[in-house]
């Protein structure tokens, strides 16, 4: 579970997050929508431990009620998963697992990649030959192999073709079913609506609207979003 309570954050008297409170339950996918500069990346950076809030509390708890820190139970998938281009998918996964102190057999590594939807044929190709969608799958596999309880995704669907984008949604849903708590920051209203259980609209650091995706259609979400952005 991710819980942000009354978070304030400012940079040089410029308020970036203003009394932000969000709760993402275990097994839930939360989509944070917002324009550029709305505070999405700042929120993610705080959860990742790269930034400290000025006030408020952040809690990340796993299914068993233990506190999760950014370093142990959190998986992070950046917008562009450009890992070491000269290493293969398996090697990249192996490397990132090893720097996290985890050691897997090649079979285990292949299994993680398979679970994340990468085709076996591509396992031993250098990552420079991967498409963006394939790279993203490796990124998720890294979090998966780490047995991450919490997944933080920064603009995961940007630049993906519809098929890869759909694959991503399915994969994230699969992870959430396994109990992962997922928070994704995005511009992509349609993809957020399709993937997430809960959606929050962030405007100038304030959460202006929160809803369940089942309660709105994509079109309704779009008009709602535009309405908030214009006002």
């Amino acid at each position: 579970m991710i819980e942000l309570k009354n978070i304030y954050k400012s940079f040089n008297s410029n308020i970036v997050l203003n009394n932000l409170s969000i709760k993402v339950n275990s097994g839930e996918i939360y989509g944070l929508l917002g324009a550029n500069g709305a505070g999405k990346s700042t929120t993610l950076n705080m959860l990742l431990g790269f930034l400290d809030q000025d006030s408020g509390t952040i809690n990340m708890i796993d299914n068993k009620g233990s506190t999760v820190t950014s370093k142990d139970g959190v998986g992070y998938i950046p917008e562009n998963v450009n890992l070491y281009p000269y290493l293969t998918g398996v090697e990249n996964l192996d490397y990132f697992s090893k720097i996290a102190g985890l050691k897997f057999t090649t079979d285990q590594l292949c299994n993680f990649l398979l679970e994340c939807g990468l085709k076996e044929l591509d396992f031993n190709k250098p990552m420079s030959e991967y498409s963006k969608g394939m790279k993203q799958k490796v990124g998720i596999a890294i979090a998966y192999a780490k047995n991450a309880k919490i997944y933080l995704l920064d603009e995961p669907a940007s630049g993906l073709d519809p098929l890869s984008s759909n694959d991503l949604s399915l994969l994230l849903k699969k992870m959430s079913k396994k109990g992962a708590t997922i928070l994704m920051a995005s511009h992509d209203i349609f993809r957020v609506r399709e993937t997430c259980d809960k959606i929050g609209i962030l405007k100038q650091g304030t959460l202006v609207k929160e809803m369940f995706s089942k309660d709105v259609s994509s079109l309704e979400l779009e008009s709602l979003y535009l309405e908030y952005m214009k006002n």
């Binding site: 990742l48 431990g49 998986g75 950046p78 998963v81 697992s97 720097i99 990124g139």
Partner: peptide
């Protein structure tokens, strides 16, 4: 540097809590 060029340095940080040691 390459990690920063390709923007996956944050991934390195959360995989390994001691970037300097890395």
């Amino acid at each position: 540097g390459l990690e920063k060029d390709f923007s996956f340095h944050k991934l390195i940080s959360i995989q390994n809590n001691q970037v300097k040691l890395w």
